[in-house]
Computed example of a mutant assay.
Amino acid sequence: MMKLKGILLLFLPLFCLFLCGYDTFSQDTNTPELYLDPIFKVNYGDATADKPQSKSWTNDYGQWLVVGDEDGPKLLKKDGLGWASQSAVNRAWQTLPSRADVWNKGDEVHIVFVDECALNVVQMTYSKHRERYKQRRSRYLPMPTDCQTLETATITQDSKNQFWVCADMNEKIMVWHSFNGRVWSEPFALADDINNDDISLIVTLKGQVSVIWSNQNTQSINERIHMDGDDPDQWSEPIVVQEGDNNADDHLNATVFKNGQMAMATKNSVDIINQPQFVLRLRDKNGQWTNIPYENLRTERSPSRPIINHIEQGRIFEVHTVRNRVNNRYFISVNEIIRKGDGWEFKELIQLKTKINGKNGDVTSSKAGFLPDEPKLIFFSDDLGHIYSFDLDTLL
């Protein structure tokens, strides 16, 4: 059931959707289940929150994860005995905000930590001599004095090695810029008419940076583009990805392919039984979008918070939380997006479950695509502080 013919493993055919038509998604109801034990515990519920942040990365030095805790965020590393807290870094992180988004490149990691009306960017470098990360600097970003609320933020780096952070604040989409990752600009607004429930996402494409946000007031998903090397405040006019039919909600997550194309998983606000709750949005190299609704809301099954990632030159995975509307139990649905004829198939591969009765979810992964010869890890957490991990390699 989980093995695909070789042609489906190729990257190019997966994305002929940009030129071809599509059908609605189908789903297999005979899905295997797997109960997971926690890999770590913190004194902080929903430690892998929040949308649309990426909190893990894999490099030559191991597998890494940032989670929240009551006394500040925690950096975890996987070793031969499991996941271990990195005490030196974590001491330096005490009192920092706990919700994090990670940008990793080579030996350096930049992390934006998010709290209400506070953003802190930490820069770390891996010390090969000491075999651990060393914090080089920590900076709070300039924040307007009239800030009332800030839900989430994401960080990226463009081809000119300049850094960007975007966040929702006071019903606006705000962007901060840094030439070097040390000194940050005052924020400037890319949109000012959003709902207080909306969020944004910033991603690096070929030669440009894209900010995408939901606007539930106008029922739209929108984008603005900054070309690398232009003045920091020089952005395209707003681009409407899709508008109307309640297609906007505050759930966004994207994966970017080497050829410059992007796939984004989003939730809509339709909330009607037997109608799709999610939209797969595919952006070609020329900035043209294709929007495909999928994953129906069912009488017994309520899907939420989708993320998406891919194996370089290979398969595309979408993962989301499901609440059983009958018994109020939660599980994680792991799916593959497969080219099938003139359409696409959304194939549920496995359901990940835990032994607790409460909420679990907030699935997260890496910004970077998975390499074929490295672990392909996803993470989620429950409201009791347990953190769970699953390697997609077990499905390959």
Rank of each mutant, 00 (worst) to 15 (best):
Q162G: 04
D393P: 01
D373L: 07
G343V: 08
S381C: 06
K172M: 11
V183C: 01
K285I: 11
I387C: 05
N247F: 07
C147D: 10
L352S: 09
N253T: 02
V241D: 02
F278Y: 08
I311W: 03
M124P: 03
W235I: 07
S178V: 00
P276Y: 02
T354G: 08
M264C: 01
V109Q: 00
E131K: 14
M262W: 04
A189I: 08
V183W: 02
S26G: 13
E243N: 12
L190Y: 09
V203N: 08
P303E: 09
S85T: 07
E108T: 12
N222Y: 08
N291V: 06
S366P: 02
I337M: 12
E108P: 04
L280P: 01
G62Y: 10
F15G: 08
N324G: 14
A191Y: 11
F179N: 15
M2L: 14
D50V: 02
D198I: 13
Q86V: 13
E336D: 12
K51M: 11
D228E: 14
E374H: 13
V66E: 01
K55I: 06
F163L: 11
S304F: 12
T290S: 07
S200F: 09
R137I: 00
V270G: 05
R305W: 14
R315T: 10
T204L: 15
M169I: 13
V322Q: 02
E348Q: 15
R132Q: 15
P306K: 11
F188M: 07
R182K: 03
L252W: 06
I332T: 10
P238W: 01
Q94F: 03
L8Y: 07
V326E: 05
S98K: 03
G21R: 09
A92C: 00
K55L: 01
